[in-house]
Amino acid sequence: MDFTVVADNFGYFMLGAWPAGPLGGAALTLLLSLASALASGALGLVLGVGLSMLDGAPRRALFLFLAFFRAVPVIMLIFWTYFLLPILFGVGVPGVATVVVALSLIGGAYLAHSVHAGILSLPAGQWQAGMALGMGRWQVMRLVVLPQALPVMVPSFINQWVALVKDTSLAYVIGVGELSFVATQVSNREMVYPTEIFLFVAFVYYLLCVALERAAFAVGRRYAAPAR
């Protein structure tokens, strides 16, 4: 084992060609994760509330829509967005945006069900009490149900976000220069140290995922505490 190859390319692993060129490496992985986490969280919240408030045909349509995105492999969806987004918008779309769109759709579809389950976990009395006070359905949702249901959902959000960090590695297939892509680049250039390189890259991902989990649980606990 000879980890000098990692030490020699450390800056490239962390930041890509930045500041001389575009940002890449672990920093881009972090950026992709952050953008996808925010977008999937917002999408999951909206669609999850939709799943709880709609009924009849629109609800069934939404259900099928979500089922589709949960059934498609991330790689296939990245292929689709890579191909469809430029047609849809009529301009070239950067690879980074392509990946964020694909990951947010999949993450959002999973989170929508977690949000829906969180909303269902509240006793019906909460709804009845809200209605009895003269609130509308949406008011009850916004003022009574969501503030109580959100802390329940924290663990599902964290799990989904950890999965997102791992899935950003798939940006590799369309040549976005995040950590996995940079790793294969260095590995192909150096030819001789693939073991050291991929062990190191796995370690960086591991740190990212575990740190996210720890931090989110700490925040979640503080946030959930006053509700009890």
Binding site: V162, V165, K166, D167, T168, S169, L170, Y172, S180, A183, T184, S187, P194, T195, E196, I197, F198, L199, V201, A202, Y205, Y206, C209, V210, E213
Partner: peptide, 23 residues
């Protein structure tokens, strides 16, 4: 279990394909 669950499958595959033969 923690290592296998918290690293991307893609990187694990690269490791088994390119790196594991070292051992």
């Amino acid at each position: 279990l923690s290592v296998f669950r918290n690293t991307p499958l893609l990187v694990q595959l690269f490791f088994w394909y390119f790196g594991a033969t070292f051992f």
